[in-house]
Design a protein around this nucleic acid. Sequence first.
DNA 1: GAGCGTTGTCACAGCGACGTAGCTACGTTA
DNA 2: TAACGTAGCTACGTCGCTGTGACAACGCTC
Lengths: 211, 211
Amino acid sequence: MAAAPQRPARLAPQERRRQLLDAALVVVEADGFGGVSIEAIARGASVTRPVVYDLFGDLDRLMLALIERETDRALIALREILPDDPTGLDPDELLVRGMREFLEAVRLEPRTWRLVLLPPDGAPRALRARSTENRRRLAEEIATLLAWGLERRGGPSGLDHEIMARLLIASGEDAARVALDHPRRFSPARLADATRALLRLLPATAEAARP
Amino acid sequence: MAAAPQRPARLAPQERRRQLLDAALVVVEADGFGGVSIEAIARGASVTRPVVYDLFGDLDRLMLALIERETDRALIALREILPDDPTGLDPDELLVRGMREFLEAVRLEPRTWRLVLLPPDGAPRALRARSTENRRRLAEEIATLLAWGLERRGGPSGLDHEIMARLLIASGEDAARVALDHPRRFSPARLADATRALLRLLPATAEAARP
DNA sequence: GAGCGTTGTCACAGCGACGTAGCTACGTTA
DNA sequence: TAACGTAGCTACGTCGCTGTGACAACGCTC
């Protein structure tokens, strides 16, 4: 007997949108931005292309919606980790805990973070702007926290704050990538421990630095 | 009067290959791996597609040749910077000088390094393997040097060497990217100075670390 | 259970890139 | 200057993806 035409369940537009964005995310993860097409997304959701056109208009708007959703998810997760007001906290412990919680968040939503961490290379040009802007804002926040932490640790350190903030972010992103690629070998705990060991090496106050 | 058909100069195959790889490199820089096509490369070299097919067979082999050429260039530049035998050198000075020379090399051949530093996202799958392998080998070398440097600086440090090597590489790559994107604001000298300032913070020997 | 809005499909026209077969024109050599 | 080897081109068929307009099925309401 011939298989039934297998019509997909009728979904409310909101539901279908969600499902299509999920499908797009899977495509991006599998084939990068270059592999994304209306065709591929529709296939992934077991639906025909006109459905996608009805709900998103075109690929650009769909991808924009996807980036929007995923970067929002990521930023929300980060907001929960970064303290609004660090006053009274220990800067070293804050960094160690932040690193661990960040990597745990990454492990919880690997697809979201893989997309966010993808270098904006192949990404549609419109997306690069958004991605770059998000990073810039995040960098500012980190820079502020870093300045507070260094101050808290003991006076002027002679460090280039702008560069140190970048270094911190680059290290965090690299940690996230390695944690995504080799979750067993690089657990959040191990990476947090490494962070702690590094901080232990630093003198408690900048006055202790070599002349 | 109608413009002449503008036939391109007849080039020896070796020359034409070189020119086509240059054109491909430009395309990658402009549009990422996703923008690369036989069509685009041929256009960039003011030549028709069959020429490309004759010389490279297909896009994969062309891209493989390109990556080969560029990673070779990059690795050669790195070889000249990393010391074969660091015995007798000052580890801190070695790192600072290495950073500066590395960034100067990057500035000298921006296209090569931009390609090498592009995350392997959009890249053809075959290329990822090569890129990953190169990084692994480089990471091993850096790890060796790092172990030597830490030893030289004073006994066991409690650091996770594998992770510290990654951190060093991630920082170097980020420095290169920022130097490529904002050459005026982030000169090799500034980034080298930042490295030196950071090293100054570290106690001369691990014994000086806080308990 | 007839009517109707909504969800989804089919089918078609068009585009851009791929590969290839057959031809043209240039340069070298005799 | 005639012949030949080679660099390069034109032209064609194919493939996969894009949008869109006409049509079918579902399920809710009365």
